[in-house]
Design a protein around this nucleic acid. Structure first.
Lengths: 344, 344
DNA sequence: GCAAGGAATGCAAACGTTTGCACAATCCAT
DNA sequence: ATGGATTGTGCAAACGTTTGCATTCCTTGC
């Protein structure tokens, strides 16, 4: 019941394992007959190289690690699907890890992946993480690493994100073009770069349209779903004056729906609402939610492509040292799409 | 930049690698001093065994494969989270694969996992799969395997599912206890065992309550989301007569919402609706959807536990052949919960 | 007829572990 | 003192590959 090895084939053929190895990887010269005989037997027995053995000698595993904070939002699931799609095509396997938003867990997961000898790591850091030295350690150990969804200033490596500034800006421009003038913003948790970029996009659109920026129209979510909002009472009163809201994500748009109704106003007639992400729930809300769709799948794909490119570049580098120019840290920014539905 | 090896430690200590190995695994006797010295150095350098090397000699990788048809329903995501939780605790890594509902892809993924030398596989077969020989081949190659979510009669191995019969039955009983008498069922795709069990549960509840079973109240979904229903026109007309519907999943309950409204009736006053799964969308519908919650996380946890138990049992078996009684194929059935919301 | 060159193959070391066996040193009972 | 356990350690093989070097055999050219 043992899997067939290169030695089994060599024995049956009466030649040495090295010859079989060479024939299989078609690298150095073997005679045409040997090549044919080996190929035939290998096919017959469905020979596959033992990844532990090749891993040991080549010092690579074709294993990639993914660290993500949770899979509750469909956004991260889609990113993961994108990663898996690319890895499937390029013949890498993916080890998925969830940090549950915990800094300690994140540290632990990274060190596990390091010990597992993955060829590279894709990560989106947890909410809780303020100190990024555990990522730096991985990079220092020369494990290629690419971040997605979240940009980390402190760390000098590649990153794939979506253009949140532009996404928010376009959404607000659309509201303005529909005649909305008093547009509020329900902003995400303050320390997240994504919250901030969306906020800036919102401001920029107002500015370009010559509308005043009123800080009283900006409110901050204290949790991921918008159930808890700073200065909620003020926001409730403001709902009577505004004609549109753009929120940080789709579940918080649902909370806004409730508040707007609580104040006796209707969507979209009195108040237009735009969410962010295009979570499946957007289509199940009444009215269906207009939202900024992030290219989640594509983010995953690109991130994996960048990582694999980096890995294979390193591989070459080892064979021909310094044949390639030094790669610079770069950030790939993908465009969002505004999906217009009934709430605007 | 190389990781520290057992030999490095041995050299620094002036002893042989075998001594270090023994000290680290604390197995055979080493002197107290050697043990202390080795432990100290190992800790100092953060020594971790190379998984390729241990994998090669022990013929195990602490890698598990998961094959799932997609991650679009939060159900499968939660199962995956459960699997990851157990594996995290037991120090296994998980390679996730998505079949996208394709039989060919499923075959390909299984053989990849086999070639990768995973210690075991967790799988839920794709919609399309009618022939299960590729699973049988894995089992014949003595790779431990456990199925979840879907039961396969043809294959003799362990399986973890939820009690769909009972879940549906309880839901219908609840409707009856609320005075509903003409209860329709929107059934899932016909060849799936889950569809059938839910249907049977529905019938059983009617029977026990002494209500007639009317086949005109049962309709079949032609897709996963219930946008396409066999005999849709008939169903529309029936909506005028019925006072409740239980659907195959939550997204199809949303379609039923639309149809009920289209016929000018209201939920829950005229028609109560119950879904299945407790997808997050259930809470975002208006009215919020009563649904049968499947213990998805727990299913994943249990499936992984069963698999790991099987793997470690096999391990022992190799050391002490036939010391343990033959394990029998068994099915673990977990209970569902009825989550009561506004739609009933 | 023989050296030079090339093609095809084998040998052996290496990757980092584990483990059966052998050996040396120590201990206790006779 | 002598013998047999007991204890700690090292040697070497094994796991399945890859690969630099050596070897063999065959051309080919003079």
């Amino acid at each position: 019941m043992r899997k067939v090895t290169i030695t089994d084939i060599a024995n049956e053929l009466g030649c040495s394992p090295s010859t079989v190895s060479r024939a299989l990887r078609n690298k150095e010269k073997v005679s045409a007959e040997t090549y044919a005989a080996v190929s035939k037997l290998a096919k017959k027995y469905g020979y596959r190289p033992n990844p532990n053995a090749t891993g040991l000698v080549n010092n690579r595993t074709r294993l990639l690690g993914v660290v993500v904070q949770h899979l509750e939002h469909s956004y991260f699931v889609k990113v993961l699907e994108g990663i898996l799609a690319t890895c499937q095509a390029k013949d890498y396997q993916v080890i998925t890890c969830i940090s549950h938003g915990s800094y300690e867990k994140e540290k632990q997961l990274l060190s596990q992946l390091y010990n597992q000898c993955v060829d590279g790591i894709l990560a989106s850091h947890s909410h809780e993480t303020k100190n990024f030295s555990h990522f730096q350690e991985i990079i220092d150990a020369s494990i290629p690493m690419v971040f997605f969804d979240r940009f980390i200033e402190e760390i000098d490596t590649q990153c794939v994100i979506s253009d949140d500034f532009d996404g928010a800006k376009e959404a607000v421009e659309y509201l303005i073009s529909n005649g909305r003038r008093k547009i509020a913003h329900l902003m995400g948790p303050e320390h997240l770069s994504v919250s901030y970029y969306r906020y800036l996009g919102y401001r920029e659109a107002l500015k370009e349209a010559g509308l005043p920026h009123d800080q009283d129209l900006v409110y901050v979510m204290l949790d991921e779903h918008g159930k808890d909002i700073a200065n909620k009472e003020l926001f409730l009163q403001k709902i009577l004056e505004i004609d549109a809201v753009i929120t940080f994500n789709d579940s918080s748009a649902f909370e806004v729906y409730k508040l707007v109704r609580q104040m006796g106003r209707s969507i979209p007639e009195d108040v237009a609402v735009i969410g962010f992400s295009d979570d499946p729930i957007a289509q199940y809300l009444t009215p269906q939610l207009t939202t900024v769709r992030q290219p989640a799948f594509k983010i995953g794909q690109r991130a994996a492509e960048v990582l694999i490119h980096k890995i294979e570049r390193n591989q070459e580098e080892e064979i021909f040292p310094s044949s390639l120019p030094q790669e610079t840290a770069s950030t790939i920014v993908l465009k969002n799409d505004l999906i217009i539905r009934e709430s605007t």
